[in-house]
Design a binder for these strands. Structure first.
Lengths: 328, 328
DNA sequence: TTGTATGCGTTATCAT
DNA sequence: ATGATAACGCATACAA
């Protein structure tokens, strides 16, 4: 900038104004533009940030970037965020509490203008870090009622019910369930949802028909194998699509036909569900929609920090595919 | 900082020194620490960056964050980069030249300390932006010989050969090929590799046995369907795993058995290949290894910009699974 | 050891 | 319209 101003024979103030499109005489504008082009001037993002108190960065923190559900969410967020001139900084937290709270605390350094975080567990430490954060944060997922933070949530309880209802309507009664860890927010909600839905249909939940692993493919496959070794379900509900793909493998490798022998329903409605064969029915929890909403909430709050905390809900819906008897 | 210094009754220089662990008398250290804790002082990342001329950020630019091969690469990069105290900023370029070169030019703003980019096409504009970049860049993928930029590359030509050799050894002779766009670097290399390998075995490449789509699932599926509508291969090589999963779908939906009727080999050896049923044999192009190497090259260059440009190669290897007759 | 003063690259304020 | 100058928050030469 200094160089540009000197070369154009004006003050650095004038140069700055011209380069930012604010006023200037025709002659000044011309000379500054010319000088800038000549020396290949490019504004320094850091210095600009120091002055503007904004970095133009928005962080997204999710457990596992390999899970397609987060890819879908990320794409939706990226679209909104890019439109506002921000860039997305992605953190993979691995789902551990220490890492997530450390991340939240680091927000105090103001290296980003805001953060969207989807914690899989919510602890006291989370809440403390969340409320103490000097930069706006939006939480995707459940959150205690009294935490004054913008929040968008799915309804996975109802989502599981959708799956169970669908299977019961199709005549299935021996319905198994492969879940993720019960000490996670989604794990607990999906467990409760499954039991409530089964009870509503007057179906008993046999312990042998329920397995818990991780929200991952390998764990889902192993959990399904354990379940199939001791029970004969005519349908299996899985707590997400990664688990469902693992369960599909366990079913097919043991010679079971899907959906003829065992119907299968996953959750999150990711690309994986469509890419499997047979294609897997899945409960959409509106991941893209949640991402879009979260991004909007965040941008709104960045623009006006005095807003009252908002809470958005996204309704689940069932996408029926081959694995539960839908068309190919 | 100003506040901390005032509260501790010292100059901001002393406060800064103490907080950075440089000297100070026991008494000064104590008072500054106390004051900092009392006001909850946290250093401002931007101001620190302006001073240090480093942002602590490293960018990764890939075409499609939904492709598991990039997820694997990203994980490897993240591990190396985190260890050095940097954070990863992920860009999805969508593979368009304008976006990629714009990204490279934006490096001049110095919003990151370095970038790892994996362009799917390499144009004049890329080369120009690459060589003009004031911040270190490492290219993952092919690059003209004379471009003085750190570079790590796979050998997908040999990779395809590995697949063809394997299939021929298993007695397959009518080998089809589903590729990505020929005007991309990997697309062109894999096409050449396929033809060379087939020629080496004295096998003709019938035009009807070759299809081109996109490096995506849906396009791969459609391309495979077109191929299968007009030819009867006893094996198919796919230019990546997304295509392979699409081809698997096309095969199964038309009643073909894999591998009995048609053997299938993918490329990139991503999680997808393991998650399919049957599991898909795949040529590993060492994506994690390439990511790790790229990160190391970048960190080295950030530490010392005068290094002579390096070029690393990662050898391909074939992972045999069920889809080509391997064990379950 | 400590404080003063300056610089990092911009933008904004305030005279002129 | 323009220029001098003060922030922005921190780190560091240099002097004391």
């Amino acid at each position: 900038m200094h160089t540009v101003a000197a070369r154009a024979g004006v003050s650095i103030a004038s140069a700055s104004r011209v380069l930012n499109g604010l006023g200037g005489s025709a002659e000044t504008v011309r000379r500054v533009r010319e000088a800038a082009a000549a020396v290949g001037y490019v504004p320094n993002a850091i210095a600009r940030s120091l002055q503007s108190q904004r970095t133009g960065l928005i962080a997204l923190a999710v457990e596992d970037i390999g899970n397609p559900v987060y890819v879908a969410m990320m794409r939706a967020i990226e679209a909104v965020v890019a439109e506002s001139g921000h860039q997305l900084l992605v953190h993979a937290t691995g789902g551990n509490v220490a890492g997530e709270t450390a991340l939240l605390r680091r927000l105090a350094h103001r290296y980003v203008d805001g953060m969207i975080i989807s914690p899989i567990r919510v602890t006291e430490a989370h809440v403390a870090a969340l409320t103490a954060s000097p930069v706006p944060v939006v939480v995707v997922g459940q959150l205690p009622e009294d935490v004054p933070v913008d929040n968008v949530r799915a309804d996975s309880r109802t989502g599981v019910a959708l799956a169970v209802d669908h299977l019961v309507a199709a005549g299935r009664t021996r319905i198994g369930f492969v879940n993720g860890p019960l000490d996670t927010v989604p794990g607990a909600a999906r467990d409760a949802g499954f039991r409530a839905a089964m009870a509503r249909h007057g179906l008993a939940v046999e312990p042998a028909m329920v397995e818990v692993g991780d929200f991952q493919y390998a764990a889902g496959r192993a959990a399904a194998q354990r379940l199939l070794a001791r029970a004969e379900p005519d349908a299996i509900v899985c707590a997400n699509d990664l688990i469902a793909v693992g369960a599909l493998h366990a079913l097919l490798v043991t010679g079971r036909r899907v959906p003829e022998d065992v119907a299968l329903v996953g959750m999150d409605d990711t690309e994986l569900a469509q890419m499997s064969f047979p294609q897997i029915s899945s409960v959409s929890l509106g991941s893209a929609e949640r991402g879009k909403l979260a991004a909007r909430l965040l941008l709104d709050r960045i623009a006006d920090g005095t807003l009252v905390p908002r809470r958005e809900h996204v309704a689940p819906s069932l996408v029926v595919r081959t694995s539960s008897g839908g068309v190919q």
